[in-house]
Nucleic acid binder design. Structure first.
Lengths: 232, 232
DNA sequence: GGAGGTTTTCGCCTGATAGTCTCAAACCTG
DNA sequence: CAGGTTTGAGACTATCAGGCGAAAACCTCC
């Protein structure tokens, strides 16, 4: 491979890693110890190295912050290129969206912490905007794909799933309707077992799971689909 | 701004520019006169220059191929980073999706031509895959946004619009249903005038236009929206 | 052990929307 | 003016989201 003599921008990969923790959707960030943006919070990531793809790059950098195996979903989000986004150098950033199921609690380094997506601390670079974009993408996809699988445990009751969706979407919703919608679409299925009673005092809940542990678009939009027959 | 000493990849911007021409959705490409991929067809684009954003970059490069003013829509698509995508150098590419209304016929250079998206000539680099991604994105967005405005003329009859949607979606559809759906959503509006008769011999068609000449999501997915009231 | 409280499930109802079909309206030509 | 052609509009059906209330299945307390 011939080395280029062209003046080229540095390139970093970043990730907005979401997890539903407690009752809120939170983002993994780390606090910068050096300028620029010393003391402010940044998304995990780092330089792209020769020979690796952006996805491998972000996985490598993420591995320094969390256990990669707990990432249930990872997809490319957007590439930022404003010339002034890094005051010190010409640097592009490709952001990814990552999701961690709610039933794990990854160990993180001392400089790293989870912050509510809706109440971020002062962010470095354009990372605040990137989180915003990621949030919009996640919320849209929750509605027309099965991404929920990447935020939920393997199995769960509908109340638990409802809590996860509510945290991620930012608004409450009905468990009854959530069940009907996801079951009809074939996104959820019953495991057959019930949550062992004895805990709360109430009817034991059925345990569900997502059918597919990989992203799939539920219905490529009900609208304007190929008609069975067309006259006009 | 400090120059980086780091080994960095070149970065190019590319665009998949679609236009409905005749009865098919076509892509603007140019034929390479030099290796690598001599003789094969490539997407318009080129190097990112210091101080410009990716969007400005792709607009600048596109200006060499078509009249930029005819671009009714432009959005970022994806960034490609496979190390071997350019056999000669380490190069990332950020692709954009561009749309040109069907009622113009931009002049293009001698090496440049429109090709049916569904029947591309041999493509250079990973440009074939990029076109595929763009096609999927366009088709999805036709269903839940008003992007149609960027493929259609200012004003049009429903038959004309139906032909455009059919070409872009790749399947036929009902003009009646298209009208009802887009009108109800408030995406279309009537201009009040009718197409002057005398042409085909038939009832004169009403003339419509898109309400908004900018991208807007029709309904952020009807599903899982905040309920009016939540019990469970 | 039964009464009352809690949580979950289920079925019924409503309203909105996509899609089909048929007929009427408005033009043409001969 | 009759017949052909294109467009528009209303009726009808099917599907789906969402709301409501009753029943099921557990608990605890008396």
């Amino acid at each position: 491979m011939i080395e280029s003599t062209r003046q080229a921008p540095d390139h970093v990969s970043l990730a907005v890693v979401f997890q539903v923790r407690g009752n809120s959707l939170q983002v993994l960030m780390w606090q910068r110890a050096r300028d620029p943006f010393k003391g402010r919070w940044a998304l995990p990531g780092g330089y792209l190295e020769p020979g690796e793809t952006l996805e491998r790059s972000i996985r490598r950098h993420l591995a320094a912050k969390v256990d990669i195996d707990e990432l249930a979903h990872l997809e490319q989000l957007e590439t930022r290129s404003e010339p002034g986004r890094n005051p010190g150098s010409w640097e592009l950033a490709t952001a990814y969206l990552g999701l961690v199921p709610s039933d794990v609690d990854p160990e993180v380094p001392a400089d790293t912490a989870w912050h509510p997506a809706r109440d971020l601390p002062p962010a470095a670079f354009d990372h605040g905007e990137i989180v915003e974009t990621a949030l919009q993408r996640l919320r849209a996809k929750l509605s027309y794909t099965n991404v929920g699988f990447a935020l939920a445990p393997e199995t769960f009751t509908l109340s638990e799933l409802r809590a996860i969706y509510a945290a991620a979407l930012g608004h409450d919703l009905s468990a009854t309707n959530l069940q009907r919608v996801l079951l009809r679409r074939g996104v959820l299925e019953r495991t057959g077992s019930k949550r062992e009673p004895g805990r709360t005092g109430g009817r034991p809940a059925e345990v569900f799971r997502f059918r597919q542990p990989e992203l799939e678009v539920t219905d490529p939009f009900a609208v304007l689909r190929p008609p069975t027959k067309v006259t006009r």
